[in-house]
Computed example of a mutant assay.
Amino acid sequence: MNESVRVVVADDQEIVRTGLRMILDAQPGIEVVGVAGDGRRAVELARRLRPDVCLFDIRMPGLDGIEATRALAGPTVADPLAVVVITTFDLDEYVYAALRAGARGFLLKDAGPALLAQAVHAAAKGDALIAPSVTTRLIRAFADAGPAAAPPRQPVDPLTDREEQVLGAVARGRTNSEIAGELHITLSTVKTHVTSVMLKLGVRNRVEIAIWAYETGRART
């Protein structure tokens, strides 16, 4: 029997924290192991409890969700945790900052229990889930609206045709299971290709794969 996905929830509104905890604890295979009302407490809890997934609101006092995400999953973190950001604000600037800080998912608070649970399970498995209503626009914002940066690095080895297909699917926000169905390959084969793409691109997660795909013009919607 698989162990439950352990989650830390952080939101500055008590009623929201309570609601999220109740929703998640009611989902099969998910257990909320800690809650916090601000970013600093959330980071302390996460570092102590080492949950499988952190679910953070963006707007919190002291240390906001973006800074808390960066502290736990940013580029300089040696052993990053999986963070899903949840907010009422569907704004490109928030999404851009959250995903650049290392978040593996971005959801709106009206997403509903099923999508919330899906995002938590996806993050725990290393997938990235962004609210379907904004997936394409928000991922493309990395290339179109992000701060100026050096040209995207090229792969250390050329991508194979199949890896290019997987790259495009990841950039469109597809999960491993969806990619397997689209390409008519096994789930384990998808995981192998995703891992190979990350190694060749020198990136750490699926969100960074998607960013690279759009920055290099390989992703098309």
Rank of each mutant, 00 (worst) to 15 (best):
Glu3Ala: 08
Glu3Thr: 14
Ser4Val: 07
Val5Thr: 15
Val5Leu: 08
Val8Cys: 08
Ala10Trp: 11
Glu14Pro: 01
Arg21Phe: 01
Ala26Met: 04
Val32Cys: 06
Val33Asn: 03
Ala36Met: 11
Gly37Trp: 04
Gly39Thr: 08
Glu44Asn: 03
Ala46Leu: 09
Arg47Phe: 02
Arg47Asn: 12
Leu49Thr: 13
Val53Glu: 09
Leu55Thr: 11
Pro61Arg: 14
Pro61Glu: 13
Asp64Arg: 07
Gly65Leu: 08
Arg70Gly: 05
Ala71Met: 14
Leu72Lys: 13
Pro75Cys: 02
Val77Tyr: 03
Ile86Val: 15
Phe89Lys: 15
Leu91Lys: 15
Tyr94Phe: 15
Tyr96Lys: 15
Ala98Asn: 04
Ala98Pro: 00
Leu99Asp: 04
Ala101Thr: 04
Phe106Leu: 05
Leu108Pro: 06
Lys109Asp: 06
Asp110Arg: 07
Ala117Leu: 11
Gln118Ser: 13
Ala123Ser: 12
Ala124Cys: 07
Lys125Asp: 11
Lys125Glu: 14
Gly126Gln: 01
Gly126Phe: 00
Ala128Ser: 15
Thr135Phe: 02
Thr135Gly: 01
Arg137Val: 05
Leu138Thr: 06
Ile139Asn: 01
Asp144Asn: 10
Asp144Ile: 00
Ala145Val: 02
Pro152Arg: 00
Val156Asn: 11
Glu164Tyr: 07
Gly168Leu: 03
Ala180Cys: 07
His184Ser: 14
His184Tyr: 05
Ser188Gln: 12
Ser188Cys: 05
Lys191Ser: 13
Thr192Gly: 08
His193Ile: 12
Val197Trp: 06
Lys200Met: 09
Lys200Gln: 13
Val203Gln: 12
Val203Ile: 09
Arg204Glu: 00
Glu208Pro: 00
Ile209Glu: 02
Ala210Phe: 03
Ala210Asn: 08
Trp212Glu: 08
Ala213Lys: 12
Tyr214Leu: 01
Gly217Gln: 01
Thr221Asn: 07
